[in-house]
Design a binder for these strands. Structure first.
Lengths: 172, 172
DNA sequence: CCTCACTTGTTCAAGTTTCAAGGAGATGGC
DNA sequence: GCCATCTCCTTGAAACTTGAACAAGTGAGG
């Protein structure tokens, strides 16, 4: 919206990125794009699904009784309920997930990992881990790995959809 | 492919991630997902296009005569030609980009940033830079910024589609 | 009870991305 | 010149994502 020098926001907020910051930002964009594409293709090829769908199966596999309410799964995967609904429909068609009604809340649905889904995971997880290891961990020193973890934690913390904004409801 | 203990690859390659590595990997996934979603919504709201499309306009704005061959633009943005073709079609419909034939190669097309497209960029760039700054740079110490740049450069280097694999053609 | 506000999950339509296929032009050997 | 082959870019269909709208259910306060 605001775009001129005397806009509502202080001028300091409109300052450009320094050359160094631009360089860092470009590297970030470049690397994250390449890595996501790489893993997406790896999983599409080896497991027949995109990375995000794989993450859903992992989420279910780690949950008690291998099931999670739709909303919980959506939050854990950081996607909208709508997107999850479509995704589960597809995974259900594959036979890897099954829906179950929630007895205590008639609106609720559980997404349940089937044995077949678990099997897919068991079969493809090693290859996926290898891909992550080769692309990331094998290339970074222990110090860099530690730094990366800290940095990403800070960034994520600043963007939490709920926790951070919950006490400032008037902002949205 | 391989999935049992005595598979073609050495057992060492199948070792799981340590707890620490898993923590780092989760933070990475979490942060990059949130940041991309955040910027995508910011640009969809303020500029009426997804982040990647915005990046295409920036690429054109920085090019000599504000134009680039389709293939060059696709490489710079790290997307397929097909995807670019669809994207440019949409941006053309918005009046922000125009196609021009290449005189020296009749197969070739230039994507050219229109004045209107440049204007959109001029109007929305400050807000975008602010979003990046707030989400990333304002939260990291100078040392962390430096580390992030180095890490991302290393990761990107290992995933270059062409440069890196070109001398190992038998791998793909 | 009843009602109003909220939550849960789905659906629809529009937009985006992917993949395979293909038209058209360039290139290089013969 | 001619042919096979490669490159440039587009196309179409299927898969995936998004945001708004919605039906159904919950729950707190009267």
């Amino acid at each position: 919206m605001g775009h001129m020098n005397t806009a509502p926001e202080p001028a300091a907020r409109h300052r450009w990125l320094t050359d160094e910051e631009q360089r860092i930002w470009r590297s970030y964009r470049h690397a994250t794009t390449l890595l996501e594409d790489h893993l997406d293709r790896q999983l599409q090829r080896d497991a027949g699904m995109p990375h995000i769908y794989y993450g859903l199966l992992v989420g279910l596999a780690e949950a008690p009784r291998r099931r999670l309410r739709m909303t919980e799964l959506a939050m854990q995967a950081k996607i909208t309920r709508s997107r999850l609904s479509h995704a589960i429909a597809r995974l259900e068609k594959n036979g890897w997930v099954r829906r179950e009604d929630c007895p205590s809340d008639k609106r609720g649905q559980f997404a349940v990992l089937t044995d077949e889904g678990f099997e897919v995971l068991r079969r493809t997880a090693p290859g996926h881990v290898t891909a992550v290891r080769q692309a990331l961990f094998e290339r970074l020193s222990p110090e860099q790995q530690k730094a990366l973890g800290e940095i990403m934690e800070i960034v994520a913390e600043g963007l939490q959809p709920e926790e951070a904004g919950a006490d400032l409801p008037w902002l949205r």
